[in-house]
Nucleic acid binder design. Sequence first.
DNA 1: CTTGATAAGTTCCGTAATGCAACTCATATC
DNA 2: GATATGAGTTGCATTACGGAACTTATCAAG
Lengths: 165, 165
Amino acid sequence: MPKRVSAPDYCLIARAMDVLGEQWSMLIVRDTFFGVRHFDDFQKSLGIARNVLATRLARLVDEGILSRRVSEQDRRKVEYRLTQKGRDLFPVIISLSQWGARHLRREGELPAFALVDREAGQPLGPVEVRSSDGRVLTPFDTQIVPASGTTEEIRAVIPPLRKAG
Amino acid sequence: MPKRVSAPDYCLIARAMDVLGEQWSMLIVRDTFFGVRHFDDFQKSLGIARNVLATRLARLVDEGILSRRVSEQDRRKVEYRLTQKGRDLFPVIISLSQWGARHLRREGELPAFALVDREAGQPLGPVEVRSSDGRVLTPFDTQIVPASGTTEEIRAVIPPLRKAG
DNA sequence: CTTGATAAGTTCCGTAATGCAACTCATATC
DNA sequence: GATATGAGTTGCATTACGGAACTTATCAAG
């Protein structure tokens, strides 16, 4: 019975982090995006303890992010794959990786691998937050509102963020 | 001296999760996006233990994601704010929240709050991964390549992902 | 200028999670 | 049959977390 991190009752980010915020979970998902399928490969790729890996994989399967199936060709092997729910984490993984590339790269360091668009063979564009009509938004361009309000009510509720800081 | 989760030496996602994968860190960042500034407010909002909160805030400041300054008006108060590095997590936070909205909402459940575009008062569009020329990409439309290769070399390196599964 | 309240942490300690190595168990290979 | 492989378990030492009480600095009131 794993300890749950927060009170994920109201906020969807909290609820998402309840699963993905467990140590190693996001990196296991990343590995599956990059084609890792098998227990021992995850273990070697991440250097994670085997018991913890077993716990994490079970949870990710339980949450419907990964599927688990025994290989037909070799019934010793178990294959973990992303479900659609798991694949929908694509923007999360890519935006994390792009944030890392912008802010965590040591001076002069070049990445060993890149993810490219298969069609053009080009690097991906930056993942951006947009309005429903396509304008790129910064945090300052957004505000939180009670979800039940109408648009008119909405604009009055929360004072604009100030850029001070 | 906090324990570091993985070997964050090569992969930028691993390095990002070295900070943000610590329990609570992402939720602290989320709170700052939504205007939380003060120690006790984080504590009440998250229900986190005070010692752990102190550790997390110190680490986030140390990593340059949050800034810490003593209030001019009341020198008892300390203000934590997002730095530019922290604000650049916007797409990560929003894509996480959208993933949660798609996959973690209980039946019939409506969110209490929504983030809207300030100008139009409308909900945000979905955060998407795009090619450099703007096409929306799924995981199947991408592949990993050694970063030093040319475009021509690149396309031969890794066999296309199969949609089987 | 003492008293009381507030804000931001710290300290202490019991409980829970992690890391590590060795072990099991089923299946495949020689 | 003997050995190897893959996917986990088990047991135990180490580390991190949760909770409550405590400290320190500052402010506001009388």
